[in-house]
Nucleic acid binder design. Sequence first.
DNA 1: ATGATCTCCTGAGCGC
DNA 2: TGCGCTCAGGAGATCA
Length: 271
Amino acid sequence: MPELPEVETIVRGLEPVLRGARIAAVDVREPRLRTPIAADFTARLKGRRILGMRRHGKFILAPLDDGAIWLIHLGMTGRLTIGSPDRPDRPHDHVVLQLADRRLLTYNDPRRFGRLAVIAADAVPAETAAGIDALSPALTADFLFVRSRRHARTTVKSLLMDQREIAGLGNIYVNEVLFLAGVRPRRRAGRLTRAESARLVTAIRTVLGAAIARGGSSISDYRDGFERSGSYQLRHQVYDRAGEPCRRCGGPLRGVVVTGRSTFYCARCQR
DNA sequence: ATGATCTCCTGAGCGC
DNA sequence: TGCGCTCAGGAGATCA
């Protein structure tokens, strides 16, 4: 569910309220996530102070006062929200942290595809296996062009979604980025031109920036750290719009499957 | 190296 | 109202 803009929105909202907060109690109600929550998770969080919160790709990283890192990935349906002490329990509230000021930080995840772990700071690269962040200045036209040659036989869409290369784009935003850049999802990466690489990099910044400005896309599950919806779904140009008219040329949008994921594009506007 | 397929789960939506 | 089916924002494993 959450891609870079949703994770960024959550982090921007929660960082100021969690920075400096002490974790008074940890309640792991359901450890059976796709990667199970480790047995020592509670012991490694309890009593710690959260120093801050940042994002890399779709990962949330919260450094703790003992040098360790609290690592959070929301998977498809994960939510990390802060609420008052009397907030009622809900189904799928798998982990509830009580802060020293008694507020509750809750991890809720119906499908349980997310991940929660406390890891050593130097283990972050290995644990996330993440490439450069999609909003990093290091993502240049040159970078993308070089990587497109390294993965010449894959599709452009797969390359952009490969978190080991560029971290942050998921299925919604990659569709939107490809539309804005005018590149078809199934194009071989090895046939990208330098000009197209430049357009894609620009499109990534434009789409992700606009989505963050609107608090992300709320299709069904997504809410930010204070349970608020985003509104960028109202601006989607192609995602989930198969058969509907292209907002640019009026032609019918196509819906296909690329590497197992639903994919939407305009055959006239994208080449 | 890469795509296809399957897997982990629950819930929503749809046709009947 | 209910049943069965398909699909969903992620990502890792396996196979060809």
